[in-house]
Nucleic acid binder design. Structure first.
Lengths: 202, 202
DNA sequence: GCAAAAAGTTGACTCGTTGCACTTAGTGAG
DNA sequence: CTCACTAAGTGCAACGAGTCAACTTTTTGC
């Protein structure tokens, strides 16, 4: 998205290069042999650096795969904060989550194979989930701000947690979409009912 | 609960003994020094067995602590299946979860320190959560059976997932109880609304 | 009593990850 | 331009979790 090729010193460029080399080598090897069958040493060697160097760029083996995150939280918070006026909070959240690349696999073969790799490796599923759930607090605060509740309101915290968690439904390999929608149906009804009971209608 | 001291061969008794010795040694050392500061070798030595023997009894370091699980799933399913007639499904589930030992810490210092140990070790929190969520499918099926829906109904799956997940709210150290209750309030309203929309009132 | 299976041991090994001491090479100030 | 500073990278050794294969005990069923 944001091309930050601005004032890059020679040093920083080299650093970025090795980092990229590592991420590339890792992805290639993982796709080729599977996550568990590739060792850190393999990757380091493929990128022609030492394992210690690898760990100076990435904090763990899993992190090699999820290089491109960053402003996910921004987008998440923005989705509720800057939604079209009149749109219910959860509706906005639902569409935002369904538009994420995790659900766009049909359109891009690259993404689809990546998704398959992650899904077939428990360690990666877990790691991904943890990254995702890290935004729980930010979302909770955004919701609280939106509804005028105190920032640590338990109901808002619960809604944030459960809405994010909707993505991790262990659907029996069939329809992830239907699963997420079912979860949101449930939450929307519950949330609207609660809102209604308090006299507001957002 | 169920005392199975029935026809125990000498062999099985010895096996159970070493297993117990391991679990005991582990708990003691963990409480004394903390989970991360105790190595598998320490535990094996304290129980006077080899590390390989330890791993024949427990699949991982974390498993040493959660020896006493078993029929949690049974109880969970029973809580919805055998609830007092007239009780709403989610009400039964809520009380069952609040009665679990995880929330009884005030009554038992043993349990409280154990909870503290787990809570203070990310690896253990994660492991515990995973064990708990493993009952997702069983609960989903129990709910489906209860409401007459097909066993793989997405709405039931979603409810099961979110209800179980209610326990893992990352409450800011304050009131876990309030958090769980907030989650259940949300789910109850949403669920009743959905049920109502379909003409049933369980 | 004996053979098969289960429990345990030993020791070496893999793999993720860290620490330490060291070199190399941009960088910025004078 | 050079020199000291600093960040990046290296090499190596180590640690802890977990696995493997080969070998020695029991215990048990017959």
């Amino acid at each position: 998205m944001t091309e930050t090729t601005e004032p890059l010193g020679r040093r920083e460029r080299k650093k970025a290069a090795t980092r990229q080399a590592l991420a590339d080598a890792a992805l290639e090897l993982f796709l080729e042999r599977g996550f568990d069958a590739v060792s850190i040493r393999d990757i380091a060697e493929a990128a022609d650096v030492s394992t210690t160097t690898l760990f100076k760029h990435f904090p763990s083996k899993e992190a090699l795969l999820f290089d491109m995150d960053a402003d996910v939280e921004q987008a998440l918070v923005a989705a509720v904060r800057d939604r079209a006026p009149g749109t219910p909070l959860l509706a906005a959240l639902r569409t935002h989550m369904l538009q994420a690349r995790a659900f766009k696999s049909e359109y891009d073969e690259q993404i689809a194979t990546f998704q398959r790799l992650v899904a077939s490796t428990p360690a990666l599923v877990e790691y991904h989930r943890r990254m995702w759930m890290r935004h729980e607090r930010a979302l909770a605060e955004a919701i609280a701000a939106d509804t005028g509740a105190p920032a640590d309101d338990p109901a808002c915290a619960a809604l944030a947690h459960l809405a994010l968690e909707a993505r991790s439904l262990t659907t029996p390999a069939t329809d992830r979409l239907a699963a997420v929608n079912a979860a949101f149906d449930l939450l929307e009804r519950g949330w609207e009912a609660a809102r209604g009971a308090k006299g507001r209608t957002s």
